[in-house]
Amino acid sequence: METKFTELAKQRRSIYALGRHVKQTPDELTALIEDNIKNGPSSFNNQTTRAIILYGASHEKLWDIVIDRLKQEVPNEEAFAKTTAKINSFKAAFGTVLFFTETKTVKEFEDNFPLYADNFQDWSEQSQGNAQFSVWTSLAENGLGANLQHYNPLIDDEVRAAFNVPASWRLRAQLDFGSIESPADPKDYMNDDDRFMVFK
């Protein structure tokens, strides 16, 4: 059996030590990210996933927004210093993909297909997972590391204002990516018997 895809999936890890020693140009990476999102499956081909791709000062601006917002939530200076160090590791990366769901499209399909209306929100999340996995794995194939963060909804309003985000786009995740400065630790797997059932 062919296992190239499986081997690529194994390369897709959460890499937290990221840098900017990237051989690809922003234009090349943008094309790669856009192609992966466009070719990801979605229910009824409704294509609900949207993305904003940030580089340079815009990438740094995002993580400054996160730090400023979290300062309002973290209880003391010691905890905030740890939080800041963590966010600065994301800021040290080369770029960030902001993943959104177009809620207007989800609502249109709920209205147009009432028999399936209760499913379209769940299906949009599945589309998100498809897009995020595809982009992340494709970056790994090209020697780049990434990690997926979820500071939404805390940062939603600030991100919307900073990047002119349409009102109907709902922020779902932030994928920072860059050169791999230190590899991920070995991955542990749960017991297959607890995960899978096979009937023949």
Rank of each mutant, 00 (worst) to 15 (best):
K4Y: 11
F5N: 00
E7G: 04
L8K: 00
A9E: 06
R12I: 13
Y16F: 13
K23C: 08
T30C: 01
L32E: 09
N36Y: 03
N36V: 00
G40H: 07
S43I: 08
N46E: 02
T48F: 01
T49V: 15
A51F: 01
K61T: 12
I65R: 01
Q72A: 15
P75D: 08
E77A: 15
T84Q: 15
I87L: 13
N88H: 10
S89I: 01
F94V: 03
V97P: 02
F99L: 07
F99R: 02
F100K: 02
F100I: 05
T101P: 05
E110F: 05
F113L: 08
A117Q: 10
Q121G: 12
F133E: 10
S134Q: 14
S134V: 03
V135T: 09
E141L: 09
G143T: 11
G143K: 06
Y151W: 14
N152S: 14
P153T: 06
A161H: 09
A162Y: 08
F163T: 08
F163R: 06
N164S: 13
N164C: 00
V165N: 06
V165Q: 06
W169V: 03
L171T: 02
Q174R: 04
A184R: 00
P186G: 04
D192E: 14
D192C: 00
D193Q: 14
D193N: 13
